[in-house]
């Protein structure tokens, strides 16, 4: 088992959601390395500076300055060569968003849940199966559903 801790980067302009995310990851495994950013531009800068030293990028879509889609668009060239996997983490269930992010090479589309239990379960699932999340993802499996849980 690779002892190297899994590195997660969470980008969301909503401080509450960042708090939920951090709290949930602490419950799952204190060994997880978690960083957060409150906007897409800062996150991109940080990724470049750290030479993409992350395993999973959880990306909100609806953000000021630089939206999740903008970030995805800029990252899509580099993703193929890196092991960084992008998980969309949003309240939107809009089919147009699902399609757009799928095309921009995100690996999973998650709608933010309504309870903390669920959130913990979802993140735990993603962390556990992160190795299976490789491109290309079949579209039927792109949207996260309870069936994975």
């Amino acid at each position: 088992m690779d002892k190297k801790p899994l590195r997660l980067l969470y980008v969301d302009d909503d401080p509450d959601d960042r708090f939920f995310f951090e709290s949930a990851t602490q419950i799952i495994d204190s060994g997880l390395s978690v960083a957060t950013h409150n906007n897409g531009a800062l996150a991109l800068e940080h990724l470049h500076e750290s030479d993409f030293a992350y395993d999973l990028l959880f990306l909100d879509l609806n953000m000021p300055v630089k939206s999740g889609l903008d970030v995805l668009d800029e990252l899509q060239q580099v993703i193929k060569d890196r092991h960084l996997k992008i998980v969309i983490f949003t309240t939107s269930g809009n089919p147009a968003n699902i399609e757009a992010t799928y095309k921009l090479n995100a690996v999973l589309y998650v709608q933010k849940p309504g309870s903390f239990d669920e959130l913990v379960n979802i993140i735990r699932n993603i962390v556990n199966m992160h190795n299976q999340l490789t491109l290309p993802v079949p579209f039927e499996q792109f949207k996260f559903s309870a069936k994975y849980a």
Binding site: D16, F20, S23, I27, T91, K112, G114, S115, F116, D117, L119
Partner: peptide
């Protein structure tokens, strides 16, 4: 409207934890 509700729900369930 839905966002604040989701937050309330989340916080409540965190407390339940």
């Amino acid at each position: 409207l839905k966002e604040p509700l989701r937050k309330i729900s989340m916080f409540a369930s965190m407390l339940e934890e």
